[in-house]
């Protein structure tokens, strides 16, 4: 019983690191994704091209590789010092997820009919009024389902952080396995499932809240 309690607590502190990566990624990648999506829709061709190529590279290579590049790259290429491990992981996650989010935003924004913008225009609204008062909520409604998918994937992707020895929950459990106890590894599923369960309820609630209108 004592050992079980100890494992539970250790996994919990590992899950704290998992949550840190998760939360930091969301906080930075959600706005950065919006910036990238505007870039990818820009009428300024060079900017659009640069953003598109960047998104292609990030979405076309494994996240695990990107973590390694962010962590070892600066030291190997420029001879700089190493980032704090968890910081390197967060940087890689933010870049990766911002790219995925940007594509979701872009899809959402482009799915709004031109007529909505024009209706706002002929009613004398400014560009920002049209974006915030007319378009934004419709975009949010459209992107909640794909976003919730992506965000739930993010919860599980955090386990990639162990590639550079960040002590997230799966790394903590794996260390027990090396010492000959395998069940803590399976026990981690409980943590993931509870957290994903909460997120699922939350997204379901948001979807329901936005159900009062149809786009």
């Amino acid at each position: 019983m004592n050992f079980f309690f100890e494992v539970t607590l250790n996994l919990l502190s590992g899950f704290g690191v998992t949550l840190l990566i998760f939360a930091a990624t969301l906080v930075f990648a959600l706005p950065l994704g919006l910036v990238l999506s505007f870039g990818s829709m820009s009428s300024f061709k060079p900017l659009k091209a640069v953003v598109k190529v960047f998104v292609w590279i990030i979405r076309g290579t494994p996240l695990m590789l990107q973590i390694l590049v962010v962590y070892y790259g600066p030291a190997l290429i420029f001879g700089w010092g190493f980032l704090e491990r968890v910081v390197a992981v967060i940087v890689a996650f933010v870049i990766n997820y911002a790219c995925y989010f940007s594509e979701i935003y872009r899809g959402g924004i482009q799915s709004i009919s031109k007529g909505q913008y024009e209706a706002g225009q002929v009613l004398g609204m400014t560009r920002s009024q049209i974006f915030f008062r007319v378009v934004l909520l419709q975009v949010i409604k459209r992107i909640v389902p794909p976003m919730s998918n992506e965000i739930i994937t993010l919860v599980k992707d955090t386990s990639l952080a162990r590639i550079i020895v960040v002590e997230e929950i799966l790394k903590v459990a794996y260390d027990y396995t090396i010492k000959g106890t395998i069940w803590p590894l399976f026990y981690t599923a409980v943590y993931y499932l509870i957290f994903v369960g909460i997120l699922t309820l939350l997204f379901g609630y948001i979807e329901k809240k936005l159900n009062y209108f149809r786009v």
């Binding site: 009919s113 007529g115 209706a119 002929v122 004398g124 209108f213």
Partner: peptide
């Protein structure tokens, strides 16, 4: 242009009401 626009109104073929 916004100010000029206010002299005119336009009703679209597709209504374009704000759904929310």
């Amino acid at each position: 242009i916004r100010e000029k626009r206010l002299h005119f109104g336009l009703v679209f073929q597709q209504f374009n009401l704000f759904p929310q």
